[in-house]
């Protein structure tokens, strides 16, 4: 037997849209390098048409995902954590390469990201009780406020925190029944594209999360102005882009989450969920049991 180094098999990184793994319709790719400038892979350079297709997929999936029981959504989010745990080493490597971290620091990021899925998995069937409830109106009416998902949310993922940050912005959006069109970190998209592979095998219905690699500055304006998108998370946009996108988002009054200083290692609150929830209030008469006169 000859002593020969085995030539490894490269992975072709592809988009994750509607539960499938397409290349960019534009046929474009761009070079992704590690923090030292070494070539890692070619990633699809998504176009506005890819973004448009992702919105179609997200819209198609939204009703079913919002209509699934909160318990089922929790099970699926937990399943994502399970699947990630199994591919932990791969993500540690990709995060280390992407962010120039040591193995142990990258591992801490991946572990925190896995735990974040678990955190949000538990929230799916609790948030309605925390932010909704019965309102004691002054009249013979039963009055109940419940949170509902806003709909299709465009997410501009953080540029620096390629995986923990990414998970921290996707999970709260979908936990409550929204679907997401995610623009991954432009310079470090590989953990995001690999996450698509995990989501595809976690019982998450196709289209609930759609992941695009490329330029937020190219796709963002189209998604921000898109009339079938209901909200936009600007976390990964710089100040100028964020302002432009917020202006464009006014076209159909999208709910806008502005960029802010954020340490993703810290325990999240509920505000990333509530940013993409609507409150619906339903009234119904109660009245007395019999025709005794007047409930007033």
């Amino acid at each position: 037997m000859s002593e020969q180094t085995r030539l490894s098999v490269f992975k072709t990184y592809k988009l994750y849209v509607g539960g499938k793994f397409p290349r960019s319709e534009s046929g474009r790719v761009y070079e992704v390098t590690d923090s030292k400038g070494n070539w890692l892979a070619n990633a699809p350079l998504s176009s506005r048409k890819d973004a448009r297709d992702a919105v179609v997929a997200a819209r198609k999936a939204q009703g079913g995902w919002a209509g699934a029981t909160a318990y089922l959504r929790g099970q699926i989010l937990y399943r994502v954590a399970e699947m990630l745990e199994g591919r932990r080493d791969q993500f540690v490597r990709e995060v280390a390469d992407a962010e120039g971290l040591s193995k142990s620091k990258a591992a801490a990021q991946v572990d925190a990201a896995i735990d974040r899925w678990v955190w949000y998995a538990g929230w799916t069937d609790k948030i309605a009780q925390v932010v909704g409830g019965a309102n004691p109106v002054a009249g013979p009416f039963f009055n109940l406020s419940t949170p509902e998902p806003t709909g299709v949310v465009t997410v501009i993922a953080p540029q620096e925190s390629s995986f923990l940050g990414l998970v921290s912005v996707i999970a709260p959006v979908i936990a409550t029944g929204n679907t997401a069109v995610v623009i991954a970190s432009e310079k470090a998209p590989l953990p995001a594209l690999s996450l698509g592979e995990v989501l595809a095998t976690s019982d998450l219905p196709g289209g609930v999360v759609n992941i695009l690699s490329g330029k937020a500055s190219e796709m963002g304006p189209h998604l921000a102005a898109h009339l079938d998108v209901n909200a936009i998370d600007l976390t990964g946009a710089d100040a100028d882009l964020a302002r432009d996108l917020e202006i464009a988002a006014a076209e159909n009054l999208k709910r806008v989450l502005r960029p802010r200083t954020e340490d993703f290692a810290e325990s999240p609150g509920t505000d990333r969920m509530t940013a993409f929830l609507e409150t619906k209030t339903v009234w119904h008469p109660t009245g007395s049991l019999g025709a005794s006169g007047s409930s007033y």
Binding site: P136, E278, T279, W283, H284
Partner: peptide, 23 residues
Amino acid sequence: AGVVWANTFNKFDPTSPFGGYKE
């Protein structure tokens, strides 16, 4: 819709959240 009135309409109360979806 942000407010749904079932078997009633145009009822308001300070304890009851009011506001819209979409535009």
